[in-house]
Amino acid sequence: MKLLELVNYFRNGGSYKEFCQTQSLDQESEVVEIYMKQPLEMDNELAFFEIEKTEGNFEFSNNGMKYSNLFDFYYFLDAIEESKNDDNKSLPNDEIAKRLYNYAITDA
């Protein structure tokens, strides 16, 4: 799954519970983190890991692949909610995805 696909899913009413089930994630985890395959590029695949597995590390390796942390799901879901307010609801999903990506790589 790519960042744009994740944005599409949640802006179109996808639920966190269903997402966790389809991704085999523990929704009771302290936090699920969103990682991107290295080197970071907007269209790279994402990976999702419970913080209990990553121990909060910025870089994480899994099955021979290296990933960088973008942000956690709490931040992402807050951004999705904000994208639905009157000021942002007209923004297309690809613009929301670009803003999230730029935030993550500039550590704003």
Rank of each mutant, 00 (worst) to 15 (best):
M1G: 10
L3A: 03
E5M: 05
L6F: 08
V7K: 00
V7E: 04
N8F: 06
Y9G: 03
F10L: 04
R11N: 10
G14S: 06
G14P: 12
S15Q: 12
Y16S: 05
K17L: 09
K17Y: 08
E18M: 06
F19R: 01
F19P: 01
C20P: 12
C20L: 10
C20Y: 11
C20Q: 04
C20K: 09
C20S: 13
Q21S: 13
T22M: 15
T22F: 15
Q23T: 08
S24N: 15
L25Q: 12
D26W: 04
D26R: 13
E28C: 06
S29A: 15
S29F: 08
S29N: 13
E30F: 14
V31I: 15
V32E: 09
V32M: 05
E33C: 14
E33Y: 12
E33L: 11
E33A: 10
I34S: 08
M36F: 02
M36K: 00
Q38M: 13
Q38C: 14
P39R: 12
E41G: 07
M42S: 06
M42Y: 14
N44R: 03
N44L: 01
N44A: 00
E45A: 11
L46E: 02
L46F: 02
L46M: 05
A47H: 12
F48K: 07
F48N: 06
F48P: 07
F49Y: 14
F49K: 03
E50S: 15
E50K: 05
K53T: 13
T54G: 01
G56Q: 11
N57C: 05
N57V: 00
N57A: 12
F58R: 13
E59W: 10
F60D: 05
S61K: 13
N63W: 02
G64F: 04
Y67T: 02
Y67V: 02
S68D: 09
L70D: 03
L70R: 01
F71E: 00
F71T: 01
D72M: 01
D72I: 00
D72Y: 05
Y74K: 08
Y75C: 07
Y75R: 09
Y75H: 09
F76P: 06
D78I: 01
D78W: 00
D78K: 08
A79I: 08
E81Y: 01
E81H: 04
E81Q: 07
E81D: 09
E82W: 03
E82C: 00
E82A: 05
S83L: 04
S83D: 04
S83K: 04
N85P: 02
N85D: 15
D86G: 04
D86H: 06
D86C: 06
D87V: 07
D87P: 00
N88Y: 15
S90D: 13
S90W: 11
P92H: 10
N93P: 04
N93L: 02
N93G: 07
K98P: 00
K98M: 14
L100N: 06
L100S: 07
Y101M: 09
N102T: 12
N102W: 10
N102L: 14
N102H: 10
Y103G: 01
Y103L: 09
A104N: 07
A104F: 04
A104I: 02
I105Q: 03
I105T: 13
T106Y: 04
T106M: 03
A108D: 10
